[in-house]
């Protein structure tokens, strides 16, 4: 019963934290777009929070390099359980065209467990909403 209430709460109120692991900034802009009045994700209870401690969802953008990889891991550990990670953009999903770069270490999903991959360069806000809807279906 308590678990049910909690799951309901989690589904209706996802607080997202935006972890930019050195993206080219375009994915970040699209995430900001998502939070503008036009798309109004607060309808679904999605709110951008400023501290990883408050977050339920980690939005990761960009390719992890030597500087950001350990910090990303650190950030992930700071989010209280239960938590989900969405990799936004082709960079976060597969390292994209930066694969051969000198400072590339390893894919995001080898650093932290990724639940949803959302390719696109950058993905549209509509695609992100779609991803979150799919995520909600996954939460049980």
């Amino acid at each position: 019963m308590l678990k049910k209430i909690f799951t309901w709460g989690l589904k209706k109120s996802l607080w997202v934290y935006h972890a930019g692991a050195s993206a080219c900034n375009n994915c970040d802009i699209e995430i900001l777009d998502l939070l503008t009045p036009k798309f109004d994700v607060e309808r679904f209870g999605i709110v951008l929070v400023g501290s990883p401690r408050h977050a339920d969802v980690l939005l990761v953008t960009g390719v992890a390099n030597r500087q950001t990889a350990p910090r990303l891991k650190n950030l992930y550990d700071q989010v209280p359980n239960p938590k989900v990670v969405i990799a936004i953009g082709s960079c976060a999903c597969s390292a994209h065209m930066f694969r051969d770069s000198y400072n590339y270490v390893k894919p995001i999903d080898e650093i932290i467990p990724v639940d949803i991959y959302l390719p696109g360069c950058p993905p549209k806000p509509e695609a992100m909403i779609d991803a979150v809807v799919k995520l909600l279906g996954k939460i049980k």
Binding site: W8, G9, K12, P37, G45
Partner: peptide, 28 residues
Amino acid sequence: TARVQYRQGPPWFQPFADLAKLLGKETI
């Protein structure tokens, strides 16, 4: 606030959902 910004805004049970969720999470 949402209406002032020409948005739809959250449903009425939003604060309760937030609370239920927070109560179920881990305290670090």
